[in-house]
Measured scan of single mutants.
Amino acid sequence: NRRVIAMPSVRKWAREKGVDIRLVQGTGKNGRVLKEDIDAFLAG
């Protein structure tokens, strides 16, 4: 159960899209999950 680094707005975006943010690979600094990462995860 790893800790995910993400801005609150990104966490909210993931929740709205029904995405478990822990499954998303972050591409930002220090592995931070970005809004673009959520979109890419949804795109496959």
Rank of each mutant, 00 (worst) to 15 (best):
M7Y: 15
E16Q: 13
K29F: 12
R32Y: 06
D20V: 04
A40S: 12
A40R: 14
R22L: 09
D39T: 09
I5D: 07
R15D: 11
L42W: 08
D20G: 02
N30E: 09
V24Y: 01
I21L: 09
I21A: 02
L42K: 07
A14P: 03
G44P: 09
V24H: 00
E36G: 13
A40Q: 11
D37T: 00
V10I: 06
R2K: 14
R3N: 11
V19T: 03
S9W: 13
R3L: 13
A6G: 04
E16C: 15
W13L: 14
V4I: 13
L23E: 10
G26R: 03
S9P: 06
V24L: 06
A40L: 12
K29Q: 11
V33L: 04
L23M: 14
K29V: 13
N30T: 05
G28N: 02
R3E: 09
K12T: 06
T27K: 05
A43Q: 13
A14W: 04
L23N: 09
V24W: 02
E16A: 14
G26M: 00
T27L: 03
D20E: 06
V10K: 01
A14T: 01
I21M: 05
E36A: 14
Q25A: 12
R22V: 07
L34S: 07
L42N: 05
G44D: 14
G18I: 03
T27Q: 04
V33S: 00
R22W: 10
R32G: 05
I38E: 00
N30P: 00
R2G: 11
A6S: 06
G44M: 15
V4Q: 06
A40W: 09
K29P: 13
K29G: 08
G26N: 02
M7A: 15
D39R: 08
I21R: 01
A43G: 10
R11I: 09
V4L: 08
R2F: 09
D20W: 04
V4N: 05
A40P: 02
N1V: 14
K35W: 07
R3H: 12
L23Q: 13
K35Q: 06
W13H: 15
V4Y: 06
D39I: 11
N30F: 14
I38V: 14
S9R: 10
L34T: 11
V10Y: 01
K35R: 12
V33D: 00
D39P: 01
G26A: 07
K12Q: 10
R2I: 12
R11L: 11
R22Q: 09
V4F: 06
V33P: 00
R3Q: 12
L23Y: 11
V10N: 02
R15M: 12
V4D: 04
R32V: 06
D39Q: 09
A43C: 13
I21W: 06
R22F: 09
D20Q: 05
G44S: 15
G26V: 02
G44A: 15
G28K: 02
A14C: 07
G31Q: 06
S9M: 09
D37E: 00
G18C: 10
E36L: 11
G18D: 07
A43K: 14
N30V: 05
A43S: 12
V33E: 01
D39K: 08
D20N: 10
I21D: 00
A14H: 01
N30W: 13
V33H: 01
A43I: 13
V19Q: 01
R3K: 14
I21E: 00
G26L: 01
G28L: 02
T27A: 03
D39M: 10
R22K: 11
K12A: 11
E16I: 13
T27P: 00
L42F: 08
V19F: 03
E16T: 11
I38S: 00
I38K: 01
N30Q: 10
G31K: 06
P8Q: 10
A6K: 03
R11Y: 12
D39G: 05
D37P: 01
F41L: 07
Q25L: 13
V19K: 01
A43W: 11
N1C: 15
L42I: 14
S9A: 14
N1E: 12
L42Y: 07
N30L: 11
A40N: 14
W13T: 07
K29E: 11
W13R: 10
R15T: 10
T27V: 02
R2Q: 11
R15Y: 13
S9I: 07
K17M: 15
D37N: 05
V10W: 03
G31W: 04
D20L: 05
D37R: 01
K29N: 09
G28A: 04
D37K: 02
R2D: 10
G31M: 05
G31S: 05
E36S: 14
M7K: 15
N1K: 14
R32K: 07
A43P: 05
I5F: 11
M7S: 15
Q25R: 15
D39Y: 07
K17V: 12
M7N: 15
L42C: 07
R2W: 07
V19C: 05
N1Y: 08
E16F: 14
R32Q: 12
G28Q: 01
K12I: 08
A40C: 12
W13D: 05
P8T: 08
Q25T: 14
S9T: 09
L23C: 12
N1I: 12
K29I: 11
F41T: 04
R32E: 15
G26P: 08
F41A: 06
P8D: 08
G28F: 02
G31T: 03
K35T: 05
P8N: 10
P8H: 11
R22I: 06
G28T: 01
N1S: 13
N30I: 05
A6D: 03
G28C: 02
F41D: 02
S9D: 12
W13F: 15
N1W: 07
G31H: 07
M7F: 15
G28I: 01
R11A: 05
T27D: 01
K17F: 07
S9C: 15
Q25E: 12
G31D: 05
I21T: 02
G18R: 07
G31Y: 06
D37H: 02
E36K: 15
W13E: 08
A6C: 06
E16S: 12
V10R: 01
V24P: 02
T27R: 06
P8S: 11
R2A: 09
E36Y: 10
A14S: 04
A14E: 01
A14R: 00
P8R: 15
A6W: 04
G18L: 06
A43L: 14
L34G: 04
L34C: 08
A14M: 02
N30D: 12
K12P: 00
L42R: 07
K29L: 12
R3P: 11
V24I: 12
N30K: 11
T27W: 03
R3D: 08
R2T: 11
N1M: 10
R3F: 10
F41S: 04
A43M: 14
K17D: 00
M7E: 15
K35P: 04
K35M: 11
A6F: 04
S9H: 12
G44E: 14
K17E: 04
R3Y: 08
V4W: 05
V4A: 06
M7I: 10
A6L: 04
R22Y: 11
D39N: 12
I38F: 00
I5N: 11
V4P: 08
L34V: 08
I21N: 01
F41K: 04
Q25F: 14
E36F: 08
V24E: 00
F41I: 06
R15A: 13
G44F: 15
R3A: 09
A14D: 00
R15E: 12
E36W: 11
R15L: 13
G18T: 03
L34D: 04
R11P: 04
R11G: 03
G44T: 15
R15K: 15
L34H: 06
A43T: 11
I5G: 04
V24K: 01
I5P: 06
A14K: 02
G18H: 08
G44Y: 15
K35C: 13
G28V: 02
K35A: 06
K12L: 09
N1P: 14
W13C: 13
L34I: 09
V10Q: 01
K12F: 07
I21P: 03
L23P: 00
R2V: 12
I21V: 05
E16P: 01
G28R: 02
D20A: 05
N30Y: 14
M7V: 12
I21H: 01
V4G: 05
L34K: 08
Q25S: 12
I5L: 14
R15S: 10
G31F: 06
L42P: 04
K35H: 09
R3G: 10
D20S: 05
G18F: 06
W13I: 12
E16V: 13
N1G: 14
Q25K: 14
P8E: 08
N1L: 10
F41E: 03
G31R: 06
P8A: 14
G31V: 01
D39W: 07
R15N: 10
A6N: 03
R22A: 09
E36C: 14
V33W: 00
R11Q: 06
D39A: 08
D39L: 09
A6Q: 03
K35E: 05
G18K: 09
F41G: 02
R22M: 09
L42S: 07
G28H: 02
V19H: 00
K29S: 09
K29R: 13
G28E: 02
K12H: 07
G18Y: 06
G44N: 15
A14G: 03
K17I: 08
I5C: 12
K12Y: 07
I38D: 00
G26C: 03
A14N: 01
